[in-house]
Write a protein that binds this DNA or RNA. Structure first.
Lengths: 194, 194
DNA sequence: GTCTCTCCATACGGTTCCGTATGGAGGTGG
DNA sequence: CCACCTCCATACGGAACCGTATGGAGAGAC
């Protein structure tokens, strides 16, 4: 863990901060513990950054790029809206990105984190809504379903990170995601009593 | 705010702790700040409690009772499963309980909070699944939809607390909840292109 | 070799919290 | 009225941080 590099740059600190967010949340972005992990001291940190908040904002910019921009770029290469949505769902449920997302959302009361969360929800729901509109939903319904999908995503990663026992595995997880996708993409169903 | 009561009991500290969780999260459960708010000092606290964790556990027991037991008792007085589910949705979206729920979930990495979150998700999803089963869904599908509903709830309160601008108001909120409820309670819809 | 500039180590003071020790203040029983 | 018991105030030591000050260590310019 204490892999000493002869000299460090700001990017090393930013990457370490993002890793720490995934493991311990915002509290993990602490100068002295990070310095220990990087095998250096605060002297190095305060050479590259003005203060802790500057590091946090750099980490959040990196998060924007990795956790929203890159994902949407990749997914957007799919040929049609249905495939794009499907690829998006696979990408955000299958990988190990959940901890960072959950911990950041949990710290959205911090003045530097709140704008990042706003940017994320805006861009992500807009992208989903655009796909739904392309699938034939009228714009208002597309917006509602996009928000619905995003809320479900947030709750899902919350459960995955905080209470993993509550989330099914394997085939049961597949069946669960099938139920969710059918509900999100299906026709506005009439009320049913089963 | 500093309403001095001549003598305090454990319940005063527990209530203050739960209020602090709603406002500032787990970090708000700090002995010295709470003492200031209650117009007393740490001397009082450490008379009634062994340490900070003891206060936290008392607050979590109080949370169990207020935020799960009481709600489910009230809702269960409704005459039929559909009405119970509807009352449950109204109860959990309309009130100001969201901040406490969100802040507690955000602190589920704490060893005392994690069991409380497990208890909550277990009891709540079991209750929802029971209503869905009574509505005619087969048990496996009822479990899936209950978890789906709970994930959506978690994401929703997360958005309400952290990024309120992202959640619609008034009539738009009604329309949104209508879409959500239709999807959660509707027939397993066939895939639609609009 | 020495000068200089970049980068880091160490030491310090300040803040906020936890938990302990100890000395009361104030009501209650005898 | 006095001894006691419950409850609280004050003072202290310790831990984990942040940010600053200052003295180098190392590498390139010349």
């Amino acid at each position: 863990m204490v892999v000493r590099k002869p000299r460090l740059g700001p990017d090393d600190w930013t990457a370490a901060a993002l890793t720490a967010i995934g493991e311990q949340g915002l509290a993990g972005v602490a100068v002295e513990p990070l310095a220990t992990r990087l095998g250096t001291t605060k002297g190095s940190f305060y050479w590259h950054f003005a203060n802790r908040d500057a590091l946090l904002e750099a980490a959040l910019r990196s998060w924007d790029e990795t956790y929203t921009d890159a994902i949407l770029r990749t997914v957007d290469a799919e040929p049609d809206p249905a495939a794009r949505l499907r690829a998006l769902f696979v990408a955000v449920t299958a990988s190990d990105r959940a901890p960072v997302e959950v911990h950041l959302h949990a710290a959205a009361d911090h003045p530097a984190v709140a704008p990042a969360m706003r940017r994320a929800v805006t861009r992500r729901t807009a992208y989903i809504a655009a796909q739904l509109t392309a699938l034939g939903f009228d714009p208002a319904e597309a917006d509602r379903r996009a928000l619905f999908a995003y809320a479900t995503y947030l709750g899902h990663i919350q459960l995955v990170v905080r209470i993993p026992e509550a989330v099914p595995h394997g085939a049961a997880l597949e069946a669960y995601l099938g139920t969710v996708l059918a509900a999100l993409l299906g026709q506005p169903a009439a009320n049913g009593t089963g």
